[in-house]
Nucleic acid binder design. Structure first.
Length: 194
DNA sequence: GTTAAGATTCCG
DNA sequence: GGAATCTTAACG
């Protein structure tokens, strides 16, 4: 009900995913991440997160849902309390990874976005085949060791644009009841239908 | 040093 | 609706 279709796509379907044309493969660079999170977060939906395991096996995961956390003013963003050991990486230029531990059992995966000293991040809330942000990191083996890793230079994790442009839906961010109505109601969750 | 709370998930 | 589970950050 609250959801609205805000971004038009090219009718991507299960059948047309992962086109054979290799020329469409592209690793996202600094210029992609160094923009405002409200531009980057929705564009991440439909991109492919790729991990290289220690035995050199590549595994690709379709990003299906993200959320934007934007600046010190955003009471739902960890940076609302300023620069701390944990939030430090969010003050870097876009392209770094911000991971943190919550509820005593889950690692949350975020991509830092925006310019230097402009704390922002896109939470990776959904990956095709997994339920929830806590479950996907567990399945992919994401933990503290990924904190600060650079998505544009890392040999074990990066994001690819494979030419998909799914329709993007928006909604309110989840699990931030403490942030107050103004921030809680921002339509900063972005997702695609299965 | 102590403590409250959490960008979750599962069970009842 | 409530518990599990432990790191982070605020406070003393």
């Amino acid at each position: 009900m609250q959801e609205e279709k805000k971004y038009s796509g090219n009718g991507t379907s299960l059948k047309t995913r992962f086109p054979i044309d290799k020329s469409l493969e592209r690793k996202l660079d600094r210029s992609f991440f160094a923009r405002d999170v409200l531009k980057v977060a929705p564009e991440l939906v439909g991109k492919v997160l790729t991990l290289r395991s220690v035995d050199n096996i590549l595994k690709r995961y379709l990003i299906t849902e993200t959320e934007a956390y934007r600046g010190e003013a955003d009471l739902a963003c960890h940076a609302c309390r300023g620069r701390t050991q944990r939030t430090e990486i969010m003050y870097h230029e876009g392209g770094k990874i911000y991971v943190y531990f919550v509820y005593g059992m889950y690692w949350m995966l975020n991509f830092v976005t925006g310019e230097k000293d402009e704390p922002q991040a896109a939470l990776i809330r959904g990956i095709e085949g997994f339920n929830g942000p806590g479950k996907l990191t567990r399945a992919m083996g994401i933990d503290r060791s990924y904190y600060g890793e650079d998505l544009t230079t890392s040999a074990r994790i990066w994001v690819e644009d494979r030419g998909l442009s799914p329709d993007i839906l928006t909604g309110k961010r989840i699990g931030i009841e403490y942030a107050g109505a103004f921030w809680k109601n921002k339509p900063w969750r972005f997702y695609m239908l299965p």
